[in-house]
Structures are given as C-alpha cells and as structure tokens.
Amino acid sequence: MLRFIFYRLLGAIPVVGLVSIAVFLFLRMAGDPVASLLGENATAQQVAEIRHAMGLDRPVMMQFLSWILHVFQGDFGISLVTHEPVWKMVSERLGATLSLSLTTIVFSILVAVPLGLFAARHRKNWIDRLIVSFCTAGFSVPTFVVGYLLVWLFSIKLQWLPAQGYASLDRGVGDWILHLIAPTIAMSSVFIVLIARITRAGAIEVLNEDYIRTARAIGASELRVFRLFVLRNAAVPIVTIIGVGIGIVLTGVVVTETVFNLPGVGRLTIESVLARDFPVIQCVIMLFSFTYVFINLAVDIIYSLLDPRIRN
C-alpha cells in the first residue's frame, strides 16, 4: 500500500513540474506588462527602470529559476497591479472558494447518489427515464443562466436569500450558509448530473452481478441489497468522478463567483487576466492545478483502499 502511494506521489511530480513551466512560459509570451503598468505618459527610461526592478530584462531561463525558487518558499512575487504580495491576495480569497467548493461537493453527493441509485432501481421505467433526461438537460444549461434564475427567484421574488456576497465563518455559521445556498445550487447543477449518471451506471452494473441475484434469491430485502452491496460497489466510480469533477468545480467557481459577487479565487482570476497581472495568474493556475493533481492523488489512494485489485 505504502509502495503504491509512494509511486503515485512520484508520478505527480513531473505533472506539477510541467504545469509550472507551461504556466511560466505561457504568460511570458503575453507581452510586456510594464507598458500597461505605467500608463499613458511613461517615458522609455521609466519603462526600462521598472523592467529592471522586476527582473524582466534577464534571460527567460534565469527568470524561471528565480521564480520557481521563490515559489518553493511560498513567495509568488508581487502583483503588477496592486503591488501587494501575490500570496496575500490569493490567500485572502481562499475562504470563499473553499467554502463554495466544499458545499458544492457535499450537496451534490447528497442529492446525486440517492438520485442515481433510485434511477438504477427503477431502471427501464419512467422514473429512470425522467431522471436520465433531467440529467442530460442539466448538463446543457449554462451555469450563469441557472445562477441568474436562482437570484431572481430566491432573492428578488421570494426574498429568502441574500442576492450576493459572502459572509466568512467567523460571522456565524447561519450567515455563512445563507450566503452559500444559491451559489451552491447553481454550481451543483452540473456536478449532480455527473455523479448521478455514474452512480446509476455503477449500480446497474452491480445489480447484474451474480451475488446480487443470489442475495435476492435468498430473500434479502431490496433496501438491504442496496445498502450492503450496491452502494458499496458503486462507491469506486463515484470516488473517481469526484476526482474528475474537481476540474469542473474549479471551472464553476470562476463563473459562479462572478454571478454572485463572491470574493473568491475565481473572481480574482478573471480580474487578473483582464488586468494582465501575470504573477497572480501564475499563482492561481498553479494553485488550481495542484489542487487537481492532489485531489486525484487522494482519489487514487481511496480508490485502491476500496478496491484492492487496483493496487496491482
């Protein structure tokens, strides 16, 4: 087991390295940030001074090495726009994004797993078909349309929920949840579909296995069959899809945070891209990619715990 974890960890290193290089080179290609930084009246000399101060006049390889060395020390440099440490800006925004991702994953699983199992159980009748079509439809509506409809319904018409913003946990759990309900639902719409589909497929596969037939034959109740065998075996693909889906969640935060004005990393990304704030973009992409890699690492490990065959 430890061996497996060790090799999986080893496998993640080149991915992380490649992402770092790609991110660095890609954004260097974006052109000179100094001109936009200094504004309309900058002289050539001012530009040269700033370029020197930022190390932009050194060879690209040197720039990369010094950058990556600093990154290892948790120093992502200084924002070109606010002139603040990048990590400070990003970490200030982590709370909202983490909260939203967490509630989305929990909510999606709570809704989607029963939904998928239910569909599997009523396979081939109208309940199944309804759930499946709902799932296909859910995949087809853009998140921001769902978001606007939710705001209109819950905040404007019914006035149950705040229309925007984020309340950090230290202002109370109730306030925190209240602000997250609508964004969570909006973001979950895609994720629920994904998990429900895979749960259904996994469950159907398991239901066809011989031991299930045996269990039924010896008179085990449907509920018992589901609890003991189906859910357990379907858990493997469900865990996998969470790994794949984390990419979707990370994409979702960019849109959802914009619609609901949540001060999270997703909104910071858009702002930084529009302002060509390289160091921040670098930091955010690295952060998102590493999250993706490590969640998938964790998923693989859980996967191998659930299904020992994988390890070999």
Binding site: P14, V15, L18, V19, A22, V23, G247, L250, T251, V254, V255, T269, V284, I285, F288, S289, F290, Y292, V293
Partner: peptide
Amino acid sequence: MDGIMAIPGIM
C-alpha cells in the same frame, strides 16, 4: 497530457 488536464479548461 496530465499536465494540461490539471489546468481547468476555462483557465
């Protein structure tokens, strides 16, 4: 490919 996959598509 793993590297590309690790960066969210929208980014």
